[in-house]
């Protein structure tokens, strides 16, 4: 196995951790952390991809851009969490399952 394969598999592993967290967790803040872990898997994959293809600069600049973009997502997510806590008095996502069908 080449170094790239190992690193890419590592990124897939991180992706798996994030997805497992999403399915398992019930607290909205924890879910946002899981989303961040997912995004970090993609960042890792981009850096590895840049190195593997010989475009180190490209890979790293894409990674930095993604970090900015997913910070924005985290901010929006946390703002939502604040509102949920304020209106529903809980962060449990079970309280957010009223729309059906």
């Amino acid at each position: 196995m080449t170094q790239t394969t190992v690193l890419l598999l590592g990124a897939v592993g991180v992706l798996g951790v994030g997805l497992y967290g999403l399915l398992r967790l019930r607290n909205l803040i924890q879910i946002i952390v899981a989303l961040q872990i997912l995004a970090k898997a993609a960042v890792l994959a981009l850096v590895v991809a840049g190195k593997a293809s010989g475009h180190v600069n490209l890979g790293q600049s894409l990674a930095v851009t993604v970090i900015v973009a997913d910070t924005v997502i985290a901010v929006v997510g946390l703002a939502l969490a604040v509102q949920v806590r304020r209106r529903l008095g809980t962060l449990d996502v079970k309280a957010l399952a009223t729309l059906r069908g």
Binding site: T4, L8, A11, L15, G18, L35, L38, A39, A41, A42, A45, L46, V48, A49, G50, A52, S53, H55, L58, G59, L62, V66
Partner: peptide, 12 residues
């Protein structure tokens, strides 16, 4: 995130 992972694979 899945799309981005795809982008990384294409780049690699």
């Amino acid at each position: 995130v899945l799309v981005l992972f795809g982008v990384a694979l294409v780049l690699a």
